[in-house]
Write a protein that binds this DNA or RNA. Structure first.
Length: 245
DNA sequence: CTCCAGGTGCCGA
DNA sequence: TCGGCACATGGA
């Protein structure tokens, strides 16, 4: 697929699958059915976010497949984005199945069973580092059916959060990413280093006492409510792209 | 050679 | 609960 944003929407092309067959999948993946104007209206009381909506109108939240999302974010811990991408791609080429059966082209992201079969040592050989242990353990839990990621889409935010942090290597930040990017929990608010900087510089700059990550998440969810995840995306994007200002 | 990267687990106050 | 530190790896 080739895709880009243009002034009036999206311009895209697919091959070998037809645009018609892919359209509903793309619509789902980009969460295009979220009520964007309602979300913008609910968040534009905040001056920073109002600027964000003006400058980055159309920023969307992906609706990823939960297992791929979980593993990708386990790999993100204390890691950099180019290497996270490499880790994910390497897992697919080493252990995934061809997207088009009977071909040797791109592989899909491997299933939990496929990564469980691979095992910690071979994941470590791919360069996952200390995260290999966590990915292997999660693969076993999911493959054995001890945790059902898809069913968490139906669970409440809190129940799904509690279930995810049971997994080793999954703390509050990664769990909130998985909830936001694959489990439809728009109140999720992952606090990483960038969000931490954004909040300290834009909201707590005149505050004396230092707030920890849990306090930041609680503060943001109380302020931004059911669409805190969209607020998170605009703060993250704004802080990374525009910097401090 | 040091520093750092979309954090987390584990340890001791 | 809360802060400090190790953790694998590779690029700057």
């Amino acid at each position: 697929m080739r895709i880009r944003q243009v002034s009036c929407g999206l311009e895209w092309h697919t091959s070998p699958d037809s645009e018609v067959s892919i359209a509903p999948i793309l619509r789902d993946y980009l969460s295009l059915d979220d009520d964007y104007s309602a979300i913008a209206s609910a968040l534009e009381f905040d001056d920073i976010l109002r600027e964000g909506f003006a400058e980055f109108r159309g920023l969307r939240i992906l609706r990823q497949e939960p297992w791929e999302c979980l593993v990708s974010f386990i790999c993100s811990a204390n890691n950099n984005i180019p290497r996270i991408k490499k880790n994910v791609n390497d897992m697919a080429s080493a252990f995934g199945s061809p997207i088009h059966e009977g071909t040797t082209g791109e592989n899909a992201f491997p299933s939990a069973a496929q990564l469980a079969d691979a095992g910690e040592m071979r994941l470590r050989e791919l360069g996952l580092g200390f995260r290999a242990k966590y990915v292997a353990a999660a693969a076993n839990r999911v493959a054995e059916g001890e945790i059902d990621l898809f069913s968490l889409r139906e669970a409440s935010y809190q129940d799904a959060l509690d279930a995810l942090v049971e997994l080793k290597g999954v703390g509050d930040k990664i769990a909130n990413c998985v909830l936001l990017f694959s489990m439809d929990k728009r109140e999720a608010f992952p606090v990483d280093v960038w969000i931490g900087r954004a909040l300290r510089e834009w909201y707590f700059s005149d505050s004396e006492e230092k707030v920890n990550l849990n306090q930041m998440r609680a503060w943001a969810q109380a302020r931004f409510g059911q669409y805190a995840g969209y607020a998170n995306q605009y703060l993250f994007h704004g802080r990374r792209l525009r910097g401090r200002d």
